[in-house]
């Protein structure tokens, strides 16, 4: 079980780097969506016996993070005719190297932390650290609104991973918190997308270049 878990978290960490390296918005959105699906499956693996609440949380996460939000973003992308290329503030290679350094550093750092024995062999903590840092890197290093949203998504995924640590002791509260998090995230994105839409309505389509930033 632990190796499956590690594999999935490893894939999630790899997707961090894919997100950092992707030069186009659609591939960035795809990477964030896949990461959402991957970490959405994690709660199922952490419980040996089936529990409907866990299953519901898992399904909700997968649906919302893997499909609803990305499709919203894709729609915004299409509606606003945003240029799909990204202009990075931090170049792709530096951000990729920084992300990799963060991942390795997180693994080293987690080894030094006094973790509970059942969490020691699992990549949950380093994965969470790395994902949060990569989310911040995206937020700092990219200019476009949509890539900022993807940064938030990665950040949120990292916090979700942290939350999984507590899933055994206080399942309901944590899961409610995670769901709340998700709602807030969707809300924020909704506002952003809505603003894009509003600008879209009031402005001439040709002048939408003002929205790119």
């Amino acid at each position: 079980m632990s190796s499956n878990l590690n594999l999935l978290i490893g894939i999630a960490m790899g997707l961090n780097l894919v997100a950092l390296a992707s030069g186009r918005l659609p591939s960035l959105i795809r990477a964030a969506a896949m990461q959402g699906v991957v970490i959405g499956v994690l709660p199922l693996l952490m419980h040996s016996e089936f529990h409907w609440l866990v299953a519901a949380v898992s399904a909700g996460t997968v649906v919302v993070k893997g499909f609803v939000i990305p499709s919203l973003l894709q729609r915004a992308l299409r509606a606003a005719h945003i240029d799909r290329e990204m202009e990075p503030l931090i170049g792709f290679i530096p951000s990729l190297l920084l992300g990799a350094a963060a991942s390795i550093g997180a693994i080293g750092f987690a080894g030094a932390l006094p973790l509970r024995p059942e969490h020691a062999g699992v990549l949950l903590v380093p994965g969470a650290f790395a994902t949060v840092v990569c989310g911040f890197l995206l937020l700092m290093g990219r200019t476009k609104a949509i890539s900022q949203v993807c940064g938030y998504l990665l950040l949120e995924n990292g916090i979700f991973l942290f939350g999984l640590l507590l899933i055994r002791s206080t399942p309901l509260i944590v899961e409610a918190g995670i769901l709340l998090d998700l709602t807030v995230a969707v809300f924020v994105i909704g506002i952003i997308v809505d603003r894009i839409q509003r600008e879209f309505d009031t402005l001439d389509t040709r002048k939408l270049t003002a929205l790119r930033e």
Partner: peptide
């Protein structure tokens, strides 16, 4: 201009392989 990015990716793949081997 995309070539260095791809080669950096190759480097990182090898680096993470090294990390797994180390672990």
């Amino acid at each position: 201009r995309r070539v260095p990015l791809l080669l950096t990716t190759a480097f990182l793949l090898c680096l993470f392989a090294l990390l797994t081997a180390w672990k």
